[in-house]
Each structure stands twice: as structure tokens, then as C-alpha cells.
């Protein structure tokens, strides 16, 4: 039994040793995603009827490629943080928890890398 008070534990960053870092990162990525999402949706709605040439010329532009990279990586990072909390909240068996957390991490990194590579392949 620990004699430390709850406040003392929090000040010592608790057992996870990272305090509010996860929450803060969720918020920072959320703030970044608001303008990026508005940019992405307003760009994409103009291209629903566009043929291949129009779309690839659009994504060829350095500004668009950089914004797409930011949107995809920030979005997938935000997704990873969110899914992590859902697993922490609902999955209580240690084995499935570790398995699902790894699955989420690997999937997010794989999808993000694939999307990022494709954007670079188009733009470079």
C-alpha cells in the first residue's frame, strides 16, 4: 500500500509516467485537423466529376502534396490515439488488450506509410 496522496501521485505523473501527454496530443492533432479537413473536403467536392488528368495534376502541385501529407499523417495519428483510448476503455483482458493495441499501431503506421509513399510517388 502506498502512503502517497492521490495529488502526490498525479504530480509524480502516476504509474504511466506521462501525465497528460496523450490527452494533449489528441487536442493538438484535433486543432490541426480542423483547417486541414476543411481544405480537404472543399478541394475534393470540386473533383467528383473530374477525370484522371485533372486529379493527378492537382496532386502534382507541391502545396497540395504537402497539405495531403499533413492531412493524412495528422489524421492517422489522431485516429491511433482515439482507438487506443477505446481499447483501454472497453477491453479488460490483458492479452486481447496488448494484441489490439499492437494491431492498431501497426495498421495505422502501415496505412499512413502507404498513403504517404503514394502521395510522394505522385508528386515527385
Amino acid at each position: 500500500m502506498s502512503l502517497r496522496s492521490p495529488l502526490g501521485k498525479v504530480r509524480g505523473l502516476g504509474s504511466a509516467k506521462n501525465g497528460t501527454h496523450h490527452w494533449w496530443m489528441q487536442k493538438v492533432s484535433a486543432v490541426a485537423l480542423v483547417p486541414l479537413t476543411i481544405w480537404f473536403v472543399s478541394s475534393i467536392v470540386q473533383m467528383t466529376r473530374a477525370d484522371y488528368e485533372v486529379v493527378i495534376n492537382w496532386m502534382n502541385s507541391p502545396i497540395v502534396a504537402v497539405l495531403m501529407l499533413l492531412f493524412v499523417t495528422t489524421g492517422i495519428y489522431h485516429l491511433k490515439l482515439g482507438l487506443q483510448v477505446i481499447i483501454e476503455d472497453y477491453i479488460h483482458s490483458e492479452g486481447s488488450k496488448v494484441f489490439l493495441q499492437m494491431l492498431v499501431t501497426f495498421s495505422c503506421v502501415a496505412v499512413g506509410t502507404t498513403a504517404g509513399f503514394s502521395i510522394l510517388k505522385i508528386a515527385l
Binding site: V72, G75, G82, L83, T114, S118, I122
Partner: peptide, 25 residues
């Protein structure tokens, strides 16, 4: 929370779209 999970599917959709553009017409 539910739409957050759904947007995970949306991320896959966007990735498919980008891969399709990178692959060709």
C-alpha cells in the same frame, strides 16, 4: 466515438483513393 471509429474506415477509403491515383488511370 462511433464516428471516430467510422472515420478509421474513411482513412482506408482516402488511402485507396490516393493509391489509385498513384497507380494510374
Amino acid at each position: 466515438r462511433a464516428t471516430g471509429v467510422a472515420l478509421g474506415g474513411g482513412a482506408l477509403l482516402i488511402t485507396w483513393w490516393i493509391i489509385a491515383i498513384a497507380t494510374g488511370p
